[in-house]
Design a protein around this nucleic acid. Structure first.
Lengths: 350, 350
DNA sequence: ACCAGCCGTCGAACCGGTTCGCGTGAAGTG
DNA sequence: CACTTCACGCGAACCGGTTCGACGGCTGGT
């Protein structure tokens, strides 16, 4: 069932079949129909590898994410979904870059073996050697996130600095004076993850601006770590009345810790941060937060990449998003007096 | 930077370079080193499309999931992650099947254009025309889930019937007599999704066996739907004291509904079901549930597929998993008297 | 010294498409 | 009627690998 077989049965040459399908040269209506009939009858579809070899394009884009740990956060996975859907709309398939221990190897595979026409990268670091490499070899790619010096490159990102600052201002406006920051895990911060760094920066600067007393924490990406982190926060400064978090996976644990400590949200303690709305709406009370528009970001990344592939000489473009804070139910004005931790059974049902 | 260039610079023929790389014929140590030096120097990597064309294998597997709705559940996404990692271990890349409205088209693309060597399918229905088609053309594939008649095919699945029954028995043993079942959305049940059907079956039969009074509900895949569903449950039968759910995305909403109704979990109301542990541990109190071993299932699916690809004549194999119920904190013996809904602020902080 | 046998290498064909240049027959024109 | 023009279709080359058959040179046995 290859093009030669079609040609034979239609009584024409292989090239004529090719032209009939691509329309790159005129073919008479007669032969076109004859060919089409044979194709329909045999259910012929051209072989993707052969086509890719011949015209140098695979019609596939790579989606690259490093092993951020053993498990995926909700945000990463939302990106995967939205990128796949958006790519399908442009007739591109999506190849996932294996996230094994040696991510470099799989990365090299995508590029070196020319499995993909372009790439979308997630989990960007401030200094990202993958992006440096891509820029050096002029490989079409779009980053979800931005490096320390994103000038002249293609990306779609969230303004974590502004978002974290907005959270601080929101809490400060409500009268909170002692607040904590719950960041992503320590190793990600050390590795230079941009969201962790920019978020921390925005938090710290805004807090200084408002004269707040703050502590910052790194926290593992799961509920147990969130619980432990919250215990540390209250241990270090029991007068803390609010927190800002970038860590959606820890959110459930943070809430549980507050419940166990007898702090009612939002009466005794306010919680906010930067979190995908799906998660923000899952916890009770629902989280007041800047919603990460993962779907939109994935779609924009694909649009940028497709544009770059179609018009190789277009100057670099980007999208910096600053979604507003969605007011839900997890923040409230700071109480005038610190609440006593009351071991009330009802409140412990957090 | 193709094999001809390498051959020229190394002063040998293209075939010699190929044999030096593949080892399929002996090559003298001298020329091997000479070739290797050139390759290292130029950073040569063979073109994947050309290789795929020549030897008929793409070293890629397809991961196929239909548009179950506009958003992905946590479980689907866990599968994607684990399949990708497991595939990488076997040197396979993973191509995501676009989940656009016309999933058939993208499905045909993967197969007809021979983009992948095999496929892993998710979101299986009891009568699944995709699997029928794959079986008809003898295309190597493994299903995550099983049809009504899985004999002679390759799959890894969860025994939803047994799991739902185990949940019922667990609740019955605790003395609950009136319980509700919260299923996946209505349209998925109608479409014949196997987890929804088998789970419902297992629940219904076990409940009949134990002489329980039950009601069953379908519920949308998000927190708002979970909240609404719980309100209906308590409206339909206020004496309900427990529920079983397959719907992890609705879990947060169910909890919120219970809190708003003043039902303390687990004192007044027990909750259990079949849910990935990541989610079970996120809610407070943590959910007593049969943990969906998504990572293990993804890995097993890849192992089966690789075996099928390597040994085309192996008879069909499968794995039916029945993870035990993890006892956490969301179930308790039924109270001797129905609890009065008490509009206590503390309890409302669910 | 001669031939068998083996090792290492080469050239050519092939995988299944795309594309370029050319030939051929029919139509159009003076 | 001879000549250009054009539409259509064909054959061959190419994309970058893999693989098969053959061949030259070296070794070893007699």
């Amino acid at each position: 069932m290859n093009i030669g077989e079609i040609a034979k049965r239609a009584g024409v040459s292989r090239s004529t079949v090719s032209y009939a399908l691509s329309g790159k040269r005129p073919v008479s209506e007669d032969t076109r129909q004859k060919i089409q009939r044979v194709i329909d009858e045999l259910g012929y579809q051209p072989n993707a590898s052969a086509r890719a070899l011949a015209n140098g394009r695979t019609n596939t884009i790579g989606l690259v994410f490093p092993p951020a740990g053993n498990h995926y956060t909700g945000m990463q996975l939302d990106f995967i979904g939205s990128v796949t859907e958006a790519a399908a709309a442009y007739d591109y398939d999506v190849l996932l870059s294996p996230s094994g221990a040696d991510s470099d190897r799989s990365f090299q595979r995508l590029l070196g073996e020319r499995r993909v026409d372009g790439a979308i990268l997630m989990e960007i670091r401030l200094a990202d050697d993958r992006l440096d490499h891509l820029a050096a070899v002029d490989f079409p790619s779009v980053a979800i996130g931005r490096t320390a010096h994103p000038e002249g490159s293609w990306w779609v990102g969230l303004d974590h600095t502004a978002l974290a600052a907005a959270c601080v201002h929101h809490l400060a406006d409500l009268g909170h004076r002692r607040i904590a920051f719950v960041n992503r895990p320590d190793q990600l911060l050390r590795a230079g993850y941009e969201s962790a760094h920019r978020g921390l920066d925005g938090f710290t600067k805004a807090a200084a601006e408002r004269g707040l007393t703050v502590r910052t924490y790194c926290c593992g990406d799961d509920a147990a770590a969130g619980l432990a982190c919250l215990e540390r926060i209250l241990h270090d400064d029991p007068a803390t009345t609010a927190l800002v978090t970038l860590n959606e996976a820890a959110l459930g644990g943070l809430y549980r810790g507050l419940a166990q400590a007898g702090r009612h949200v939002p009466r005794d303690f306010s919680v906010t941060g930067v979190v995908a709305s799906r998660w923000a709406e899952t916890v009770t009370p629902q989280l007041t937060a800047a919603d990460v528009p993962a779907e939109q970001m994935g779609r924009l990344a694909v649009e940028l990449l497709v544009e770059r592939l179609d018009h190789p000489d277009t100057p670099a473009r980007h999208h910096l998003l600053t979604p507003p804070i969605s007011l839900r139910a997890s923040t409230a004005p700071a109480g005038t007096t610190p609440t006593d931790p009351a071991p009330d059974l009802g409140a412990a049902n957090g």
